[in-house]
């Protein structure tokens, strides 16, 4: 299972695919604000990234993949605070 609700934390595990965006969206839009834990995440589909950008959950955990950890995660952190570019 790639998107899993663990008590109050949403865990993304393994490689998250397009269809996981739907499950994530539902989890993020129901109930209280839940953090998303990425520590076991290996890859993220763009649709999942977009859901994280749009719905702005707080993110915890460092994924092992250098691309996710060093490039994508910082980009997400910056972007979720700033306005979209070119507006």
């Amino acid at each position: 299972m790639t998107v899993r609700l663990d008590d109050t934390v949403i865990r993304l595990e393994g490689a998250c695919h397009l269809e996981d965006a739907d499950a994530l969206t539902i989890l993020l839009q129901t109930g209280e604000a839940r953090p998303v834990d990425l520590s076991a995440c290996e890859a993220l589909h763009a649709a999942v990234v977009q859901a994280l950008l749009a719905l702005k959950p707080s993110l915890t955990g460092l994924p092992p993949s250098p691309f996710l950890r060093d490039l994508l995660l910082p980009a997400l952190a910056v972007e979720r605070q700033a306005r979209p570019s070119n507006l």
Binding site: L18, A21, D22, L24, T25, Q29, A46, A47, V49, Q50, A51, L53, A54, L55, L71, L72, P74, A75, L76, V78, E79, A82, R83, P84, S85, N86, L87
Partner: peptide
């Protein structure tokens, strides 16, 4: 790397996870 939303998501509309809105 920089990833952003092309158009900010309007919270009054249902979020559509399958329409790409990324830059």
């Amino acid at each position: 790397l920089r990833v952003s939303l092309r158009a900010p998501w309007d919270p009054s509309e249902p979020y559509d996870p399958f329409t790409c809105n990324l830059v």
